[in-house]
Design a protein around this nucleic acid. Structure first.
Length: 500
RNA sequence: GGCCCGUUCGUUCAGCGGUUAGGACGCCGGCCUCUCACGCCGGUAACACGGGUUCGAGUCCCGUACGGGCUACCA
């Protein structure tokens, strides 16, 4: 039989790393098995569910390229895929259980229940519903009904141990005394989580229920429900939690851990997807940088780890960097462009020349960043030049006797040259080298300083032509050519009392 | 409190009865180089503890400790 899995988030906020990792595992598992990946919205919590969350959720999944085969927007044969649109189905199921005497109405007020709960806690024992309404006679039931009390509905649960084989954790056994007769339908006739999940998973023919460990103790309740309905049980598998640095379940307390936040921080979909997949799963050959198709091909539940994992920022950045490196230059350029537009450094729409030039900028930046948001910072040297930024390192270079000679020579020669190609730049440097007999660090350090006012940055033979081409373009912020920069540097040095 | 699950370098993932306990990130050192970065080479560092089982245990069993999850008319 073909595998069918689902990702069933409740749209009560932003999609966060823990949830999306569950989505990724489900997705990888289903695609590996050539099965079906279903998206279902568990929006029965009327108070907390919002349309905004649904939109965000869909946007995030699409961004990560986790596409669903059945679900909202695209539909499918087992819809609807929003629980709030399935209430009649739940009502029918409740009716059936009532008729078969497997469930019963409970008229106890929540206040009374709260009191019992408190008492149980005071005595240090686990609270379970005492079954008051289970033993009501038909007459008593009628009386309560007549008095206008709206009941909730509970499942009849007998005391016994429920066991199941978890796909990830192996044999798990839990005693039903842990929860007793639990509520399946609320007073307002809305289904509770466990009730709706079982009905939906059955009707949607889900074969494997794969979710977070926080649902492990719900599983016996759900098994009881499958048995009550006479439905075939799916396989269950529970992934370990993702923890924050303090060892607690990853949450808002650890900063914004939403997918949206990671997107805004400059992660690319391939990188985040890969990093998340590696949190709790490992490749048989211990490869770490994997594309989506490779992950699909290599994924298996056998290699999913049982123990919780602490989210590690460093590793995520590293993996993201590797994927940035894999990006075709054109795609990468398109990804970083918005950041430059936002800073007012380039125009929103490019001329052909600008386009070609920006590709060079992108090339310089690509191997120097881990996050897209770092692109502008790394390219700053192309756009800005500030002679007055003297640090100790630069001052030390300026003390060298030959330094000023190199700078002056460059300024003189550069203003008459076309330095828009690497070849032209190199031949000019060679000229300086031959005429002044200065070479190595003594040559390159002054050159770097007078064109970039910095001691570090991209290779000069790449940087200088890019600056030169940029200086000839009609950009929002005019780029100063390297000869202008050199002259301005000389000017500055003279003001500082250097003899040049 | 009760129940369930987990525990290998700082972090992450290998290991599925016999290994010098391996890879990756981070960190440190070196090489490359005009600097930084990239890349390459090397180093650092772990089987929570105590009992068993076994010729032999990180690997199997039982305790203890620690961590996490659940304990709702939330999902």
């Amino acid at each position: 039989m073909s595998v069918r899995v689902r990702f069933a988030p409740s749209p009560t906020g932003k999609l966060h790393l823990g949830n999306v990792r569950t989505a990724i595992f489900n997705y990888l598992y289903s695609k590996n098995k050539k099965g079906t990946f279903i998206l279902r919205l568990e929006d029965t919590d009327a108070v907390r569910s919002t349309d905004e969350s649904i939109e965000g959720l869909i946007k995030d999944l699409k961004w990560l390229q986790i596409e669903w085969d059945e679900g909202p927007i695209i539909g499918g044969d087992y819809g609807p895929y929003r629980q709030t649109e399935r209430y009649d189905i739940y009502q029918n199921h409740l009716k059936k259980l009532l008729e078969e005497d497997k469930a019963y109405p409970c008229y106890c007020s929540s206040q009374a229940l709260d009191k019992l709960r408190e008492e149980a806690r005071a005595k240090g024992v686990n609270f379970i519903y005492p079954g008051t309404c289970r033993r009501l006679t038909e007459k008593e039931r009628k009386e309560r009904e007549a008095s206008g009390v709206k009941p909730s509905y509970r499942l009849k649960v007998s005391p016994h141990i429920v066991s199941f084989k978890d796909l990830i954790r192996g044999d798990v056994s839990i005693h039903t005394n842990l929860f007793g007769d639990f509520i399946i339908v609320r007073q307002d006739l809305s289904p509770t989580y466990n009730f709706a999940v079982v009905i939906d998973d059955s009707l949607m023919k889900v074969t494997d229920v794969l979710r977070g460990e926080d649902h492990l103790s719900n599983t016996p309740k759900q098994i009881l429900l499958y048995e009550a309905f006479g439905y075939e049980k799916p396989n269950f598998g529970h992934f370990s939690m993702i923890l924050g640095p303090d060892n607690a379940k990853l949450s808002k307390r650890h900063g914004d851990v939403s997918v949206e936040a990671f997107r805004e921080r400059g992660f690319i979909p391939e990188g985040l997807f890969n990093a998340l997949a590696l949190l709790g799963w490992s490749d048989p050959e211990e490869r770490e940088i994997l594309k989506k198709d490779e992950l699909i091909e290599r994924f298996s539940l056998e290699r999913v780890n049982k123990s919780a994992a602490i989210f590690d920022e460093n590793k995520f950045r590293y993996i993201n960097k590797q994927h940035i490196l894999c990006l075709p230059l054109k795609d990468f350029a398109n990804m970083i462009k918005p950041y430059f537009v936002k800073e007012g450094l380039v125009n929103e729409s490019f001329s052909d020349e600008e386009e070609e030039w920006f590709l060079k900028v992108a090339e310089i930046v690509q191997k120097r960043i881990s996050l897209l948001t770092e692109a502008v910072e790394q390219a700053k040297v192309i756009f800005e030049f500030e002679p007055s930024l003297l640090n100790d390192e630069i001052k030390a270079v300026l003390q060298e006797e030959d330094c000023l000679k190199v700078i002056l020579s460059y300024a003189l020669k550069a203003e008459k040259r076309d330095l828009t190609t690497r070849e032209n730049y190199i031949s000019l440097v060679n000229e300086i080298k031959n005429e002044t007999k200065i070479k190595g660090k003594n040559l390159y350090h002054p050159l770097r300083i007078c064109v970039s006012s910095s001691m570090s940055g991209p290779d000069l033979d790449q940087l200088v032509p890019t600056i030169e081409i940029g200086s000839k373009l009609n950009l929002p912020v005019k780029i100063e050519s390297t000869s202008q920069r050199a002259w301005r540097y000389i000017q500055f040095l003279r003001e500082q009392g250097y003899k040049i």
